[in-house]
Each structure stands twice: as structure tokens, then as C-alpha cells.
Design a protein around this nucleic acid. Structure first.
Lengths: 130, 130
DNA sequence: CTAAAACTTGACGTTGACGTCAAGGGCAAG
DNA sequence: CTTGCCCTTGACGTCAACGTCAAGTTTTAG
């Protein structure tokens, strides 16, 4: 298929697809006249890339990750990076979860009229709420 | 305290603090000579702001949120936005966790020599791994 | 054959949360 | 007094993941 169809089926812009190629995330064949041609598998590939992007991974990480996923073979150096990135993701998770709790408290505060809800815990220094 | 100390204690740059002020997220008193002065409570305030930023909230949203937090009163419109943001965070969390699992599988694959580990589940269409 | 739709590369624009000078003012220590 | 660190206000730079023309080529529909 050509770039327009892939874009439609993977629900991204053609610009995004060219960007992915530029970053080494996505390959494409070419017709004689130079137009990009993709196999069916590209749809899932692009969806995978999107998934990793929305997870907040950088294209730099993804570009190292994809070959590892494909080859299922990881040299020690890459392993080091993966471990490092895993830690970074964990940190992000922790931060996001804290933020999520904070938002939940706010939402509670707003939905519950104003029952003597959660005493403090919206401001800082509330100690772990459970 | 002055800006340098606040920056140190809240673990952000002085530039960030000035940016927060610019965005209306953080107030400061001034000495006669014009230097910013903050109360102790500013430390927690800045940490809260940071937390909301890591949650992916924009400064525009935060600037409307902070007074609501202070007043412990949130109008329905703001509530709607919060619920939306909460959902966005949840989606991000799910995405990040999926990415984390992928990384874990890769790391496993690399550390374990190559036991017939987890069959597929690295590529697409692996169905929920639990 | 022709016009529209889809494609190409190239290059500049956007947004948010700051980083990073630049040029100067203020203040405790020696 | 002057050295040195902290502070001030600009104002331009950055980075990522594209968006958005522009100008030209190719493919498709009629």
C-alpha cells in the first residue's frame, strides 16, 4: 500500500509516517517513480510506534528498541540502556500515579459536596493518604 | 527565603520559579531592592506545581486549578476538565505500563540466556499478557 | 488526454517549559 | 573597597513530534 492508505489505516498523518522514516523507525520500499510502498505489516508497526510514543518514550529510545524487538537479541550495551530506560519509566510511573491521586482528591472534593471529606491531604504535607 | 534557596529546597531551577511567577502560578514578595522573597509554604507550593506538571497538566489549567485548591471549591466546569485530565492520565499510565512490560520482556530475554521464554508478546497482537 | 487526487522533497512554523547568556544591581566578608 | 556570589530583567535558544505551505511529479478517474 502507499502512504495515504497506511496513514488512514493506522490513523496518523502522512507527515508522521515520513517523520518516522526519517527517524529510522519505519522502512519503506519505493516504486520506480519514488513513491513509498508498505507491506500490510506496516499498519501494526505504526500502531506499535504510536503506542510507544503515547507512552512517552522518545524516538531515540524507540529507535534502539525496535531492532531489539525484531531481532529478539540484545547485546550488553543495549541491555544497559534498556535497564536505564526501564528505571526512567518507573520514575515516570511513580510521578504520574502521584499526580493521579492528587487529581482524584480534587475530583472527590468537587463531587462530594463538602462532607468533611478527606481532612487535609490536598495541600502538601498530608502524609501518605493510604 | 530568596529564590536560590527555594530553588534548592524544591529542587527546581530559579528560571523555573520565575517562569511560574510569569504564568501566575506562584507569588512572591519583594525586598526594597526588588529581590523576590518567599515564605516557607512556597516550598510545598512549588512541589505541588511540579507534581501537576508531571501529570501533564498545562500551566493554563494549573493556573485555574490552584485557586480552586486553595479555596477548596471547584465549579462544575472545572470539574469536567479535571475528569478529562484524569482520564488522560489513566490512558498514559496504561500505555506506560504496557511499554514497561515490553521492556521487562526484553530485559528478561537478554539476562536469561535464551530459555524458551515468553513465546511472543513482544510483537503486536499478543493479546493482553494478563 | 486531462484534471483531480495523491505523492515527492524541502523548509519553515508551532507549542510548552524551561536553558542559557547578557548586562547590570545588591550585599556580607576580608 | 573590592571580591564574589546572589539577585534582577530581558531576550533569544532548545527539543520533540509533528503541522503546514510550496513547488513540482505521478497516478487515477473519466
Amino acid at each position: 500500500m502507499r502512504i495515504g492508505e497506511l496513514a488512514g489505516r493506522a490513523d496518523v498523518s502522512t507527515r508522521a509516517l515520513r517523520y518516522y522514516e526519517e527517524q529510522g523507525l519505519l522502512e519503506s520500499g519505493r516504486t520506480v517513480s519514488g513513491q513509498r510502498v508498505y507491506p500490510e505489516s506496516a499498519v501494526d508497526r505504526v500502531r506499535l510506534i504510536q503506542e510507544l510514543f503515547t507512552a512517552g518514550l522518545s524516538s531515540r529510545l524507540i529507535v534502539t528498541l525496535l531492532p531489539a524487538i525484531d531481532a529478539r537479541r540484545i547485546d550488553p550495551e543495549l541491555l544497559q540502556r534498556l535497564v536505564g530506560e526501564r528505571a526512567a519509566i518507573e520514575a515516570k510511573l511513580v510521578g504520574l500515579q502521584a499526580a493521579a491521586r492528587r487529581l482524584d482528591l480534587l475530583i472527590d472534593l468537587a463531587t462530594h459536596p463538602d462532607t468533611t471529606s478527606c481532612p487535609a491531604s490536598l495541600e502538601q504535607g498530608a502524609a501518605q493518604p493510604v
